[in-house]
């Protein structure tokens, strides 16, 4: 499909075409990464590794009690997926040229700091760091790092492939 579009497009559109497909790719990468690592976070929540499940993302909205059940966690994962698209673009703007996984790791830790030090206590009913306990902190940092590497390395790799 992409190829046929390319053939039909004229000179000016040709330049835009690669960027549009890259744009789409970032959306897919961000969404998948958000959903995937949220679901793994849900697994960690079920296994009692962490006190914070993906439903915590929904605390912004005043839904009924269903958000505390299984459905709430899945809905939370989907919501995190949508938010993740934005973070993926943030990575693209900041770190797209970093070709090692360290860009993703740093990005993940930074995201975690933003969520757990500022957003969480302020809006998402996440306890301050002191009361979270080691297990929750370690597990959440690891999840954010893995998310960061997933999104970051994918975007950087894609960027590098398109450059060459």
């Amino acid at each position: 499909m992409l190829n046929s579009e390319k053939k039909n497009s004229t000179g000016k559109e040709k330049k835009k075409e690669p960027f549009r497909s890259f744009f789409l790719k970032i959306v897919v990468i961000g969404f998948t990464g958000g959903v995937l690592w949220s679901l793994i976070g849900y697994l960690a929540y079920v296994l009692n590794f962490t006190k914070i499940g993906p439903n915590r993302a929904l605390m912004l909205f005043a839904f009924d009690n269903w958000k505390n059940g299984v459905a709430g966690h899945f809905a939370g994962a989907a919501f995190i997926g949508i938010i993740s698209i934005l973070t993926a673009f943030l990575y693209y703007v900041l770190f797209k040229k970093v070709r090692s996984i360290w860009g993703g790791i740093v990005f993940g830790v930074a995201l975690w700091a933003v969520v757990f030090c500022w957003l969480g206590p302020a809006f998402l009913k996440i306890d301050p760091l002191g009361r979270l306990g080691t297990n929750t902190i370690v597990t959440s940092i690891c999840l954010y790092v893995l998310f960061g590497v997933f999104v970051g390395y994918s975007i950087s790799y894609e960027y590098g492939e398109r450059q060459s």
Binding site: A44, F49, T134, N135, V138, T139, C142
Partner: peptide, 8 residues
């Protein structure tokens, strides 16, 4: 727990 999670 931290061992398992960080290990993975």
């Amino acid at each position: 727990v931290p061992g398992l999670v960080i290990g993975c």
